[in-house]
């Protein structure tokens, strides 16, 4: 039995190492043909046109634009829900609603994507002139809905873990429930909440189906949420499903984009890991 467990562990580690190896070796060949400088500063991305450009910025901006829309929507919502659940909701309600939130997080993202494309976009087009059929706004908003459960569930855990003695201290000085929540409990749980936000951010950056389905696939250096954009993930999907010859430069762009994404989420995860480690023990 012990052997089996060990083999499982080894397989996991080897797979990870393998992925990272392929990712880096393929992008190494890529960067022998395209300089890192061009990759980071060129404002056009057109690997399969006749006039090729390999600037990651349009994809990066697409990723960040949809992610920021999602965060602007999801962070306040998620934290408000967390505060409600931990400080106001009756115990019973909390007991039933938390698993429900987690189910929401388990809906396949392609479903969210179609929801964005076929419900949210037509609805918003009634109010926002110039909203493209594929746009960053709908994709971002729906991505926000997708990450709300993540933020609220993790934040709620952090709020709920704040010791009772702090609540009593605040109430004992004549704080109302609202004052206690915002002035004492929220700051006390801040590290957990920040971690939940960073993880949600990483999740949004790596999210693929929603943006592929609803944001379009047009590399576009813009900050206008009404426009069609392409994210790094959407690009990878489209490139992988098309037929580009292996070992061609077009093929290698997939890995260059992949490495960018990898570095990005790796950094985010490291930051959240650091915050967790650094600030966790404060209260026990």
């Amino acid at each position: 039995m012990k052997r089996v467990l060990m083999i499982c562990a080894i397989i996991t580690v080897l797979t990870t190492v393998g992925i990272v190896y392929v990712l880096f070796s393929e992008s190494f060949s890529f960067f022998q043909q395209v300089s890192l400088w061009d990759f980071l500063t060129d404002t056009k991305w057109s690997p399969i046109s006749t006039e090729k450009h390999f600037g990651i910025l349009p994809l990066l901006s697409g990723t960040l634009l949809t992610t920021f829309i999602a965060m602007i929507f999801a962070v306040p919502m998620g934290i408000t829900i967390a505060i409600y659940l931990s400080e106001y909701a009756p115990k019973k309600f909390r007991y039933y609603i938390k698993p429900l939130l987690e189910i929401l997080a388990a809906i396949p993202t392609v479903v969210y994507g179609f929801f964005a494309l076929t419900v949210v976009t037509p609805f918003l087009q009634g109010y926002i002139p110039g909203l493209a059929g594929f746009n960053a706004l709908s994709a971002g908003l729906v991505m926000g809905i997708m990450i709300i459960p993540m933020i609220s569930s993790l934040s709620e855990d952090a709020l709920y873990a704040v010791p009772k003695s702090l609540r009593e201290g605040a109430y004992g000085m004549g704080s109302t429930r609202l004052q206690t929540s915002f002035n004492v409990i929220l700051p006390a749980a801040s590290s957990g909440i920040i971690v939940s936000v960073i993880l949600a951010f990483a999740r949004a950056v790596g999210e693929t189906m929603i943006v592929t389905v609803a944001a379009g696939n047009m590399a576009n250096l813009t900050a206008d949420p009404r426009e069609t954009v392409a994210t790094i993930t959407a690009f990878i999907v489209n490139m992988s499903t098309g037929d580009v010859p292996q070992n061609s430069i077009e093929y290698q762009t997939i890995f260059a984009a992949g490495v960018t994404l990898f570095v990005f989420t790796f950094l985010l995860n490291s930051i959240s890991f650091y915050i967790k480690k650094r600030f966790q023990e404060k209260y026990d």
């Binding site: 010791p163 702090l166 004992g172 004549g174 002035n183 006390a188």
Partner: peptide, 20 residues
């Protein structure tokens, strides 16, 4: 009750300063 508690200070068994 908030007014009441402003008039009556309370100190607990375990020190519970706010994280400020």
């Amino acid at each position: 009750v908030e007014e009441l508690r402003k008039k009556i200070g309370m100190v607990f068994q375990k020190p519970n300063p706010f994280p400020k």
